[in-house]
Design a protein around this nucleic acid. Structure first.
Length: 306
DNA sequence: AAACCATGCAACCGCCGTATT
DNA sequence: GAATACGGCGGTTGCATGGTT
């Protein structure tokens, strides 16, 4: 025979913990510790709870050194890095973040970070994983050199990857445009996405050789003038209908000829003339296959990987 | 003001490897 | 060695809250 059952399942309380229960559990553990036996603990502590429930409550909430909420950018970076490396092994990830619980990290990932990293089309898009330093010499997957090409970097040397998702953690060019994730479409279709620095709405740009600028991603699809300084130059007027659930691909070629000054847009009366009623809009939504075709049919001066 | 919807998060469920009988 | 509980973990659920229509 094996062990005796841990508790009477029919007579244990479930649901949210009351302040009184919290106090009982905390007082008991403060005085006696867990004793390495969660099963017998609730009875000793005067709680009508399953040992598992007590353990969970203590580890995820009552433990004195726990920090809740307010994840820092550094913590975001660590979580994203580890997730792309080892997947949803929350206990391992939590071990790298002092005072954080696996449950908190898991919730944070599911409610915040995951939305940043995935699109409804099922492809991964670059994210705000800022390098802790600008030293790029340590990563073999980092492009080895870049030219200064307007607000974007241009990859000078071709790169190839064995994985379809790699993190390029530490590349910042002179324009402070940070280059992030890489996906590979094929040998001759290497692209590098460049996020707009200064924008907080998850937009990304791809500059094509014919000066067209593809803008996609984003909760709201807006670029302020400060974004222009960092690689923008357009404002997407067609905003997503619901936050974080849509992904727009926008061909701005008709308005961004030269794409270096949003004043052009005003001078050309683009904003005023742009509406769906007169059947003219410089903003066109593209599907994933269309965008791939657009990119593959052009020689990109910006190297982008999906 | 009410109904509806989206979000955040605490807690539970079930699985798996290990320990115990 | 078999049977069963324990401890730990990740996935999922359900409730509370806040925002929007």
């Amino acid at each position: 025979m094996g062990r005796t059952p841990c508790c009477d399942k029919a007579n244990v309380k479930k649901g949210p913990w009351s302040p009184d229960e919290d106090a009982k559990l905390k007082n008991y553990i403060d005085k006696h510790g867990t004793g390495g036996n969660w099963i017998s603990l609730p009875q000793k502590a005067g709680l009508k709870r399953c040992g598992k429930s007590c353990r969970l409550r203590w580890l995820n909430y009552l433990r004195p050194d726990i920090k809740h909420g307010d994840f820092s950018e550094e913590e975001d970076r660590i979580i994203c890095n580890l997730y792309t490396t080892i997947g949803s092994r929350w206990s391992v990830i939590a071990a790298q973040l002092p005072r954080r619980t696996d449950n908190d990290i898991k919730n944070y990932w599911n409610t915040k970070l995951k939305k940043k990293l995935t699109s409804p089309h099922g492809i991964m898009v670059p994210q705000f994983i800022q390098p802790s330093s600008t030293n790029s010499s340590s990563s073999s997957s980092s492009p080895s050199s870049y030219s200064n090409n307007g607000p974007f970097s241009t990859l000078l040397e071709p790169i190839s990857f064995s994985s379809n998702l790699l993190l390029n953690p530490t590349t910042t060019n002179n324009n402070n445009t940070t280059l992030l994730f890489h996906h590979q479409l094929s040998q001759d279709q290497n692209f590098m996405m460049s996020p707009m620095m200064g924008a907080e709405n998850n937009n990304y740009h791809v500059k094509l050789a014919d000066h067209r600028l593809l803008v996609f991603g984003g909760d709201q699809g807006s670029c302020s003038s400060s974004d222009v300084e960092n690689g923008g130059g357009v404002e997407e007027k067609r905003r997503s209908s619901s936050s974080s659930s849509s992904m727009s691909f926008v061909d701005c070629s008709r308005v961004v000829n030269g794409w270096n000054n949003d004043r052009q847009l005003e001078d050309q009366g683009i904003w005023e003339n742009s509406n769906m009623e007169n059947n003219y809009s410089p903003f066109m939504d593209y599907g994933l296959e269309e965008i791939k075709q657009l990119i593959s049919s052009n020689t990109c001066t910006t190297n982008v990987l999906f």
